[in-house]
């Protein structure tokens, strides 16, 4: 456990905190990668996922794509892009975008699919246009699962952003690799602790956001069900909420 204390001491040492090589800056880089990649991925994946979820077309492709990407080794992709694009931030950023697309895509279309077909049928029967069904029914009811997907994307990227340093892309991984190379274990551990804390904090923040975006009518049922039936409180919207990593 002394090693852990050494790691904490490294974090608390002002010499390691400020300046371009300090962990404040590296942490900023880690966050910039995370939110930059997730934002780009969201712009690509959300419309695509909504299209798949609303029409049901291309669903099989989307499912197998999301599943297949899970097996794609991010380190390999990062290094391959690094060889092609050179060192710096571009290869990591593209890698992380690729990494974040599948969970967001899955969250977007799973959110639409989780909406009861009868509800959509009724919305159509009372005269909503397809656009109104998407905006007024599917988007709000699918939001919890979409946020769940974004949450998974954020957590995957924030964890994997550690590898950016492997192609000289900066972020907190720089300390981990430097520490391993120079046998400075407290530096490696200190950075590892920082990355872990960052991931845990983001997890907490997103868990909170996800609670807040569940439409209130849906929560209303949960409360009722918990009271009357004991076992399945979160069947419809719950499972992927905590599914995220």
């Amino acid at each position: 456990m002394n090693l852990i204390l050494d790691g904490i001491a490294w974090i608390l040492d002002p010499a390691n905190q400020t300046g371009p090589g300090g962990w404040f800056a590296r942490l900023g880089e880690q966050l910039a990668y995370t939110f930059g990649a997730v934002a780009i991925a969201a712009i690509i994946a959300i419309p695509l996922g909504y299209l798949v979820g609303h029409t049901g077309r291309g669903r099989d492709v989307a499912v197998s794509l999301s599943g297949g990407f899970r097996a794609l080794p991010s380190l390999g992709v990062l290094i391959l892009l690094g060889l092609g694009l050179g060192i710096g931030f571009r290869a990591p950023l593209i890698t992380f975008v690729i990494l974040a697309i599948p969970p967001i895509l899955a969250g977007a279309y799973a959110g639409f699919e989780a909406v009861d077909r009868k509800t959509i049928d009724a919305a159509r029967a009372v005269g909503m246009t397809e656009g109104q069904i998407v905006r007024q029914v599917e988007v709000p009811l699918g939001l919890p699962l979409l946020i769940g997907g974004i949450r998974s994307g954020v957590l995957q990227v924030v964890a994997t952003a550690t590898l950016a340093a492997y192609v000289s892309g900066g972020a907190l991984g720089a300390f981990i690799f430097e520490g391993v190379a120079t046998r400075n274990y407290s530096e490696t551990l200190g950075a590892s602790i920082l990355v872990t804390l960052l991931a845990l904090i983001l997890e907490g923040v997103f868990a909170l956001i996800q609670k807040l975006v569940v439409p209130r009518g849906v929560v209303a049922r949960e409360i009722k069900e918990v009271r009357t039936v004991s076992s399945r409180p979160r069947a419809a919207v719950g499972s992927p909420i905590q599914e995220g990593k």
């Binding site: 009868k118 049928d121 919305a123 159509r124 009372v126 005269g127 439409p215 009518g217 849906v218 049922r221």
Partner: peptide
């Protein structure tokens, strides 16, 4: 057409949110 015809279905089909 649908907006000027009332429609009531089994399980009400209300919007839960």
């Amino acid at each position: 057409l649908r907006r000027r015809i009332g429609y009531v279905m089994q399980n009400s089909g209300l919007l839960p949110h």
